[in-house]
């Protein structure tokens, strides 16, 4: 492999952290204490894990309804995320947002929202602020294949191209918009990254299940935005193992084949990385991560519930 083992180890551990957080949410969901929709990223960990190698807390990122992985990869607090899903006062959005509305501005995670395509222009606008304020950072928009069918996708990319904004668009193509396959939503022989290219944005494509490809192409994409201060669009193929929304598997309900899931599972990047690393010290690192996750759930469960008397507190921000 062309990737240095120390770097690969970091990627693996970030992906591991994401997967274990998500699995813990899935396992505990039946307790009925996390009373909001959860869109888990299990199966889609590699792209955000690799991404985290090339950005700092200084850079901006925004995301979608399926945001846990992006939030964590950017360095967002696990405790605050889990508390948010439990609807607690200590949550990153004080329990007002839930799983789909995560924020941790201290690490540059500027927000995730639930309406498909909703943050594409927001991340683009962050790019505009970087340009006008002449800051040394980039803005990343995480988006899914479904959002490339929205009007704001075209509108935002067009604006980023017109203005040369330092925005990286990371399209995680998991082939499904809820249960609707890409084939019923987009023309068969048109690739999403080619669509972006035709709008005037330099683009590329990578296999989001191949560590090397993912690493090389993301590095190239991010460096392009940093060096040229222009937008870049990268499409990465990926796959979610669980249902669109919720803790379960849904291969039996009839919109996709069990075989398709198994095919991806065989190429699971976490398994491949771990096998390749064959590093015994990983066990210690993994154990530390599992402890942190366990602590986060304890923190969330023990945290104060928000007070209804304060429900109007954040309707408007008060003037200084």
């Amino acid at each position: 492999m062309k990737i240095d083992k120390e770097i690969l180890k970091k990627i693996y551990l970030t992906a591991f952290k994401i997967r274990k957080v998500e699995e813990e949410i899935a396992d505990r969901y039946k307790e009925q204490e996390m009373r909001c929709p959860v869109h888990l990223s299990i199966g889609q960990e590699l792209v955000p894990a690799v991404y985290s190698m090339f950005v700092t807390e200084n850079d901006y990122a925004v995301s979608t309804h399926r945001a846990h992985a992006h939030y964590l990869s950017k360095g967002g607090s696990i405790n605050k995320m889990i508390a948010e899903i439990y609807g607690k006062e200590t949550g990153c959005s004080k329990g007002l947002g839930g799983s789909m509305h995560l924020i941790d501005e201290e690490v540059g995670f500027m927000g995730s929202t639930a309406i498909v395509g909703g943050t594409i222009p927001v991340g683009t606008g962050l790019g505009l602020s970087i340009k006008i304020k002449q800051e040394n950072k980039i803005s990343t928009v995480f988006l899914g294949d479904g959002s490339t069918e929205e009007g704001v996708f075209y509108e935002s990319l067009n604006f980023a191209a017109v203005k040369d904004l330092p925005v990286l668009y990371i399209c995680e193509n998991n082939m499904y918009s809820v249960y609707s396959n890409l084939e019923v939503r987009q023309p068969k022989n048109r690739k999403i990254y080619k669509l972006a290219e035709s709008i005037g944005i330099k683009s590329s494509h990578a296999n989001g299940y191949d560590v090397e490809d993912c690493y090389m192409k993301l590095e190239e994409a991010i460096n392009y935005v940093k060096e040229n201060k222009k937008p870049f669009f990268i499409e990465l193929d990926t796959y979610r193992y669980r249902e669109h929304c919720g803790p379960n598997y849904d291969n039996h309900i009839g919109y996709r084949e069990e075989q398709e899931y198994k095919k991806h599972l065989e190429k699971d990047p976490l398994n491949i990385m771990k096998e390749y690393l064959s590093d015994e010290s990983l066990d210690i690192e993994e154990k530390k991560i599992l402890e942190k996750i366990d602590d986060a759930f304890t923190f969330a469960k023990e945290s104060q519930i928000p007070k209804y008397e304060n429900i109007e507190k954040y309707i408007y921000k008060e003037k200084n």
Binding site: V122, T124, S129
Partner: peptide, 12 residues
């Protein structure tokens, strides 16, 4: 999109 751009620019 330009309204969303305003949202993004403002949080920036």
């Amino acid at each position: 999109a330009m309204t969303g751009v305003a949202v993004g620019a403002s949080i920036g």
